[in-house]
Amino acid sequence: MTHYAFHFDGTRCTGCKTCEMACKDYKDLGLGVAYRKVYEVTLGETKKADDGTFASTCVSYPLSLACNHCENPACVKVCPTGAMHQDADTGLVSVDADKCIGCGYCHMACPYNAPKVDREKGHSVKCDGCKERVAAGEKPVCVEACPARALDFGPVDAMSKLGEQADIAPLPAKSYTSPNLYVKPSKDAKPAGDASAKVVNPLEVM
């Protein structure tokens, strides 16, 4: 039994969204659905003084986020049908489309904005960790797509050596779901749960 985790290197990510679009192409997702999204967090001010000069406290950083395949997934917990399930061997969380009623509970419960009901498909959809690729010895398509090499994927043991568990805003404290995401934050990044770190691009991610 090897549970898998993502790694996000915030010192490298440039917010380019290649991960997101590569996933959308591979998974053939249309408008309104993305399994991986890139959040922009921006804080601070850039002001102009009376003498016309600037002073800036602006910090800004991106976070690329898919499903964290949590050890204690909120989506699985609330699912009434068992459609949302976690693979015992890999820890990957995915949807059994034949069981899903599309109630949207997983979407509401997940604090990582991962599952979403695709009404056209008639069920909940989300990142499944590219389980067929992982089984074939490849990494999820988003990871292998990253031009800046800011993403990685592998056994939890290996990924946990690369960063702290989900400790980056806008993510909540890891205690809720024990997410399998290990983050190396940039200098600009704020810790998980810091409510001052706002997502400033809701149009692009919700």
Binding site: C16, K17, T18, E20, M21, A22, K24, D25, Y26, D28, G137, E138, K139, V141, E144, A145, C146, P147, R149
Partner: peptide, 28 residues
Amino acid sequence: WVDTHTSPDATFDTPQARACLRGRTYRR
């Protein structure tokens, strides 16, 4: 679907001409 020049074992130093977000939408 559109894949690119990549491999699962690539390290930070491995030179790969990975397509950008736009390249990944060529099918569309």
